[in-house]
Design a protein around this nucleic acid. Sequence first.
DNA 1: AGATGATAG
DNA 2: AACTATCATCT
Length: 646
Amino acid sequence: MSEHTESYDPLKVSRFTYRQLQGLRQGSTATPLRVIAHIDLDAFYAQCEMVRLGTPRETPLAVRQWDSLIAINYAARPFGVSRLINVAEARKLCPDLVLQHVATFREGEGGRWAYRDDSFRSISTDKVSLDPYRAQSRKILQTMKEALATWGTDDTEVESHNPKQDLSAVLEKASIDEVFIDLSPLIYRALLQRYPELQMETQDENRDAQLPIPPITALQWDTDCLVDLDQHETEEDDPDWDDVVMLIGSEIVRSVRNAVWEKLSYTCSAGLGRNKMIAKLGSACNKPNLQTVVRNRGVQNFLNGYKFTQIRMLGGKLGDQITAAFGTEKVSELLNVPLEHLRTKLADDTASWLYGIIRGDDRTEVNPRTQIKSMLSAKSFRPSINSVDQAEKWLRIFAADIYGRLVEDGVLENRRRPKVITIHHRTAQFRSRQIPIPGSSAIDENLLYDLASTLLRQVVADGKAWPCSNLSLSVSSFEDGVSNNKAIEGFLIRGDQAKALNHSSRPRDTDDSPSEQASTEKRRKLDREGSKIKNFFGNSSHPEDTGADERDSPQEPAEMDPKLSGIPQFVCPRCSKSMIEYEKEEHDDWHFAKDLASQDREEAKASQPPPPTKSNARGTSARGRSGRGGGGRGKPEKGQMRLAFQ
DNA sequence: AGATGATAG
DNA sequence: AACTATCATCT
């Protein structure tokens, strides 16, 4: 441990090099200066209902699905309300608990979901809809993106050193309520602005030279929760750049979280670390509404406290096998097992991956993915169903559900369409059948239904279709039929589909909204972008007047104006970023620069072991019942104790 | 390409 | 306990 220095000593140098600094700009997954954030909405479904219903934060609230609870807000948790108990028990523990049932589709009600007073009694006619939550998720994601895009550009009149380079954060939607963000490019930009001495003088300077030491001796961590340092580290040591980047990262994340709160009234928790694994574990450390920073100097101490089964990919059978093979689930104990020993019990790939991961080494990329890859609509049948007739009723609902989501996710605009439709069906075992979706016709509800129905008949023809305890329909293999040069044709396709949407959907039916639907305000046409969102919920997410409404205004498809609809949209085939025509050239330049940079990256990356290959899990006692017998989380079945690796 | 599993939230 | 989603792996 070095002695505490009160003043900045310009003769000291950093542990880090110019090359490692450059890694930030180039998306290197190996640089120790990388900063990844994981942001997780607090009790997401519960917050959605709190926002929709306007209940105060102190009011305990739970979201119910039939007789179970699927989300419990933080106000309710001190009462002991948890996901493991049922509605009656929850009421007993917390008499003032607000219990809101999820929205549902109902048989024979036009394929529209709604919040219904009696849905908890209607498990046999209703199907859960998560659409309201998906809609909120999209808004939150959008807000985060905007916050990231404007961070550091509003207050200071900045001129970037390389105006062509767009240094923006990569954002990966990990689930409906979680995102990963690679903050490295943004932080790189901020570093150069704040510390001009970091700039390399000339091109041919030695990139492996060490950086100057940061001109600071103490960092202000504000409201962040800091993870304790490793054994041989001390807070008295002067910070190096890996500490500084975390500090900047935490500033950015704070501003993102603040934007989500200010604009949409959602709280979230965040973790910051040098990779996805660390960030993910970190975000769960201090909930709700706090952010946790894991500095490099604290990584091992941080991980030592965990069971490795809590690390991503180790929560299932692989984790069980490892536990069995080495007789421990503690990271701290597995740390004592040398790589060679790991190799004797695990496949080489898996062993190296595991060896690295428990030491905090994870070089998984943050995948710039926002778009959904498949959509599934499913229903479990309490008493099983026994006829094609019954099944087809549900297929109608599934088709309506999926079609609505296709529209809402802007599938029509982006001319993205699924290529495959699959039916899943469970009697004794699970079975599934899939067929291509003909590329010729526009996708509408009826087409989906007809295909589903065909599949169902195939399943039935295969025999042993009844009784059926679970049925679902999914679409997948989305292809983005994008091309900037076909804007006009694209428009025509859109137009057709928009009409199809208008006419083909099932009779817009009899009397309106089943029960308590929020008032309908149907204005607001083509302004989905930066509009102040006053009405968080309700209307804008209801299929009846939603997505479609916000975007394509299906009420008046004939009047669609290609210019107003922002037609000359170009979507980069490489990164799916959408932009308008004149931005394309600059964007291509950016890719070009990035490609050059990736050479560097390859060198650095060479040593990263691949993630565990699932060459295992096979071999022994094939399938068999799901063995739900033994309580506790999935303990390995007898037949599976043997490792398939060796 | 189609069917099935593993994992996770 | 549902219900979604994604990825990998076998055929």
